[in-house]
Structure formats: structure tokens, C-alpha cells
Design a protein around this nucleic acid. Sequence first.
DNA 1: ACCTGAACACCGTTCAAGT
DNA 2: ACCTGAACACCGTTCAAGT
Lengths: 170, 170
Amino acid sequence: MANTDGPTRERISITAYELLKEKGVSGLSMRALADRLHIKAPSLYKHVADKDEIIADLQARGLREFGEAIKKAGKSRKAKALAYRKWALGNPHLYEITVSIPLLRDRIPPGLEDGVTKMIIEITGKDHAHARAVWALMHGLVDLEIAGRFPKDADLDLTWKRAIAMIGKA
Amino acid sequence: MANTDGPTRERISITAYELLKEKGVSGLSMRALADRLHIKAPSLYKHVADKDEIIADLQARGLREFGEAIKKAGKSRKAKALAYRKWALGNPHLYEITVSIPLLRDRIPPGLEDGVTKMIIEITGKDHAHARAVWALMHGLVDLEIAGRFPKDADLDLTWKRAIAMIGKA
DNA sequence: ACCTGAACACCGTTCAAGT
DNA sequence: ACCTGAACACCGTTCAAGT
């Protein structure tokens, strides 16, 4: 008799997150995940329907933790913007899986996405169109920075300063 | 005797582009590419070093065609911004492979990336930091739109209007 | 109820062998 | 010089079989 205590659904989630943190999106495979849990890949399918269920789990975690980080930040628009950057750069793989691949809307807790969206609208203090533009600005900065698209000598602190100056001036 | 005229390097490039346009980044595999050229996958390696060489080819094409589209657009910042959106949405897979995955800097023609960057700086008419923020704004809008992150009822024309209004006001 | 090996349809890439 | 089949180390997923 081998393991009597198989991996719970919870342990699968936690291990998937560890794997993502260490190896990134491309390193998150069902086989690698199974290895860490000391089971074979097919056994995973007794606990989850498919890989998307695991991805949706991580996206939900990303939205939750991101939302908390923004909530905890100072109240000014500048503080919120810098918290956005800090969180994204501190959790690049979680940011990527949450925001750079299609969101599995039907498989994350309802209201979670809306909650984060509403928070962004509240921060900008204007209408939805403006809030979306601000979000795009933040996301674009972070995405290009994570992807290494800015030259090495680029002054990104200054770039963020300019970006923050843009907000609210429309 | 089978094919006497094997695929040239040029035909590989063209076929890769067709494949990308039809099937997207995930559909661009060496095996699928070989199939279209009526050869076996290993034969590709007599013409290219690896898949990255093909990706770099497509990234170079993306930078070139994108640059031309922006150059041809009207001179106003608004016209340039709308041309950015139009090109990206009209060529979503080429946009993605060019800008949403790491740029293979060592494998594209030197100066190509700089040329496009300089063009953006010229358009914004300010310093590099400002130009980068503007680029991030455009990229963020397009990336979120392509990824389907905005709600279906979002008024994206209005969002772009607000975004364009932000530019130049920093 | 949970886990397994074998299998299927995929990847990128290497390499000895053929022409 | 170019192409091939076989192989290696990977994917996600299914399924009959074991406990």
C-alpha cells in the first residue's frame, strides 16, 4: 500500500501556485504538477475536470490578492498606481496568468472580476471609459516592463511619474 | 522522385505568416508548418536553425508593417492613435507575436526596433518617458481589447477618446 | 473512491541513413 | 544539398484495469 492520504483539492491548488511561482506559466503543466504531488498525471483528473480549472483557480487568487493590495495602498491616485506596479512586478507570473491570458469568467467566483473593476472606477473617480483608459495605461506599463520591452537604460520611475500625471487630466 | 523543388527560405517565411494569420500563435507549430510545405518537420532544420528564427522573422515583419501603417496615418496624434488601434485589431496575431512575447532582439534586423520607437517619440513630441507612457497606454488598450477583458457593452470608442485626451496633457 | 499504465494526438529537436 | 524515419523528452487527456 502506497500513500493512503491522497492530495486534496486544496493541496492541488497550493501546489499549482507554488509551481507557477517557481516555473512560470509555461512550467505549469499537469505532468509537473502531478510529479510534485507524487501521483501520476491521469490521477489529477479525479480531482479536477481539466487544466482550465486549475488556471481559473489561480486567476481567482490573482484577482483576490491584487484587489487586497490595491485596497491596502494609500488613498491617493499616485499611491494606488504605484501599488499596482509593485504588486504586478512582485507577482509577475500570477499577474500574467490572471490578466495576460483569457479570463475564465465562467469558472471564477461571480462578482470577483466586477469587484476589482469597480475598485478601479472608484479610484479614478470618473466614468467607466476613463477608468478603462487608466487601467489600460497601468496594464500596458506593467506588461511592457515584464516583457522586457523597454530599453535597459529606460527611466521607468520617470515613465510612471509621467503616466500618473496623465491620469485625471482628461 | 518526389518534389524536386524544395521550399526556399522565403517560402517558409510566407507560409509561416499564413499559418499565423489563420491559426494564431498557438497554431504555429513546426509540424503544422512542415505539413503546409509538404515536407516533414525535421527537414525544416536544413533551412532554419530553430523555431525562434521563424518567430523573429514574423516579429520583424510585424515591426515593419506596423511602422508603415503609422507612418501612412494622418499627422495628428489622434490619427496616429487610431491607426495604432486599427492596425493591431486588424492584425491581432501578428501584433501578439510581435509585442506580447519577448522580442528576439538579436535576431531581427538591427535598427528596426529603434526606428519604431523613435517614430513614437516623434509623434508624442516630448521626452522618452512620456513617449513610453503613451505607448503603454496604446498597448494596454489594444492588449485588453484583444484579450477580451473589457465587458461586451463597454464603449471602447469612447475609451479611446478619453485615452487620446490624456496624451499631451502631462 | 482513488490511482495506475497504456494509449492517443500533439510539441520542438536531433541524428543516422538515404538520395 | 536536401529529405526521411526513428527517436527523445515533452504536452493534455481518456480509459480500462486494478485496489
